[in-house]
Design a protein around this nucleic acid. Structure first.
Lengths: 106, 106
DNA sequence: CAGGATCCCTTTGGATACTG
DNA sequence: CAGTATCCAAAGGGATCCTG
């Protein structure tokens, strides 16, 4: 799963967040820690498998942490790292740009 | 090729630029108009087919314009639209973030 | 030069069933 | 609840050959 970092900075960023779901996951975690089920619900149409694999790869990239509680039923919480949270300006820009684009193309 | 705009602004932005190559194309066009061959060369490892299909879909999205000159050999120039150029702040943020990430993970 | 056409591979995502 | 395992479909991308 771990790939080499590209030489180009913008490619590095893209590699880490450009999947269909990762930006949505990050956005939903900007509000704070969430459980697996909460994430799945707030994202909506994502399948368990895909959510799991995205979360794992983002953990590996250092964008978020995964904390497992030894309880029954199990509880797993996901939290953005500093690195993950530092993507906020990019996300905000993307939201603003997207709004303007939607307005112009509705 | 034309897809419905998602309800969510950030998804809209993602849909338009999150492919592997689109951000690189936009970045290369930030400097000004370029010919097909120049783009292909500056991007490097992209194949003709993929470059063509990305350019067409970006034209359809209103991010760039395509101008064909009736010459032999043919000349085709691509230029960012205002909309495409307005992605600059996002690109810049991505470059900055990518640099910091690379530095932290080298 | 700037592509179109074709074939194939890999990756991502989706559906369903099962489990500690 | 939060996964795993398995199978499958679709899309993006790559390679090669051909052409106005």
């Amino acid at each position: 799963m771990k790939r080499e970092l590209p030489a180009c900075p913008v490619e590095t960023t893209l590699m880490l967040i450009s999947d269909r779901w990762k930006v949505l996951i990050i956005r939903d975690l900007m509000d704070g820690t969430k459980r697996f089920g909460e994430l799945k619900k707030s994202i909506g149409s994502i399948s368990q498998k895909v959510l799991t694999s995205n979360l794992r790869s983002m953990e590996e990239s250092g964008l978020l942490t995964r904390k497992v509680y030894a309880e029954v039923p199990p509880r797993v919480e996901y939290t953005l790292t500093e690195t993950g949270y530092s993507l906020k300006p990019i996300l905000d820009s993307m939201v603003e740009w997207g709004k303007a684009y939607q307005k112009a193309n509705q």
